[in-house]
Nucleic acid binder design. Structure first.
Lengths: 222, 222
DNA sequence: GCCAAATTCGAACAGCCGTAAGACTTCCCC
DNA sequence: GGGGAAGTCTTACGGCTGTTCGAATTTGGC
């Protein structure tokens, strides 16, 4: 029996490093290589070589290269959404179900920006997610288009905070805000460093979060 | 003698559709396919088949597949930057060399948004540029990182319009604004359409420009 | 209407790709 | 400690990739 049929169940088992050691080695190595070089530019042989496992491991444990990409995407997306939902929930609790603009935006932006910190364990995962969003397979693009339930919670909250705005306007501004966020890949940081002649400190992620919140909040208040 | 050595000179010859018909067929077909499916997902055979020319045409006229991508990128980037520079120049003339915030941002965003109109001849070119920015070769990424002279004109103008902001702050906000723009690929439009249950009219590009200007201007005024 | 240069064409090369089959080894439970 | 499942390994297949070569063809100047 192929173990890939149980893959979905293992998504929740976060710290399950003990069982299926090779599967985890492949998962981690693939995530890193995909994030750094893109899906198409990384071969199954690259992955298994980096992981120090056999070539056939990818197909045995995940079924195919596409399925491996999709599984990484699902797991990391679920993690990120969980952190965002938790922050939004806490903001709701603090404010009687109708938090101010800035707290909603903070719930949306803080988790990914936390991941972006140089020493954060999920830094490479965020780079992976940003890349997968634009370079991923049709299956991933389908999920991004279809599964908007998570974003809807945020658009609903934003509508409650700014009931004078039309839903359409809120959707667009949310779209803009996510665009600001998704632009934060390695390459863009580099360009920014050149543009500002090394003045920007990409290491200071909390300052970046502050900047993004200021910009986005002002955009929503316009 | 290989004609590819003269390729750089022909970049300026915009309407040179008459000479080198096949070269132009390849150029146009490749741009469309790259924009729609990504660089890695399009083979030389796909391009030549779509263009209705011989397989060897790409290597004969452009040297290699990478060089073809780079040449499309250079030409379209130059075109876009020319339109932006022209608008910025006109804004300078109208305002004694120090245009208001909104006019600077309009010079930055109007040209690409014009291209995005459904019936615009450069619609596919903008999609190509957005894709090439994140999926392109190392050579393209190097140009994006190094050649920031064009963006510098905008950051300088923005600094003059908001002298109370630190240069670093201006760079980041410019970065955010470009992020809003670069997020406008087909896939994102689709998600937005689902999110808003078909309420968004992506055809109405001038309304989108207005929205983006409002959002970005407010962000810069924060 | 000829010659040479420019272009197009058909064909093939060498190499990498994802995947699968089958033999082999390890592990765990009864 | 034997048997069966789970995992690992080697090997190779078929297919697609970018690129090249030499011949055939077209083009442009005289």
């Amino acid at each position: 029996m192929s173990p890939t049929t149980e893959a979905a169940a293992s998504i929740e088992a976060e710290g399950a490093e003990t069982e299926a050691a090779t599967k985890n080695l492949v998962f981690v190595a693939a995530e890193r290589l995909f994030a750094l070089h893109g899906f198409q530019n990384v071969s199954v042989r690259d992955i298994t070589a980096a992981a120090g496992v056999n070539l056939a491991s990818v197909n045995y444990h995940f079924g195919s290269k596409d399925a491996l990409l999709f599984e990484i995407f699902k797991r990391r997306t679920a993690e990120l959404n969980r952190e965002r939902a938790k922050m939004l929930h806490e903001a709701n609790d603090r404010n009687g179900g109708s938090p101010p603009l800035r707290e909603i935006l903070a719930a949306l932006l803080t988790p990914p920006l936390r991941w972006l910190a140089p020493d954060h364990e999920r830094r490479i995962s965020l780079q992976f997610l940003i890349r997968a969003r634009s370079e991923g397979t049709d299956e991933i693009r389908q999920v991004l288009k279809t599964d908007v339930s998570h974003l809807r919670r945020f658009s609903d909250a934003l509508l409650r905070a700014r009931p004078d705005l039309s839903p359409e306007e809120v959707y667009w501004r949310l779209h803009f805000t996510l665009g600001m966020l998704h632009n934060n890949r390695f390459a863009e940081f580099d360009r920014l460093n050149v543009l500002s002649e090394g003045q920007t400190s990409e290491a200071d992620v909390s300052a970046l979060l502050e900047r993004m919140l200021n910009f986005a909040e002002a955009g929503f208040r316009a």
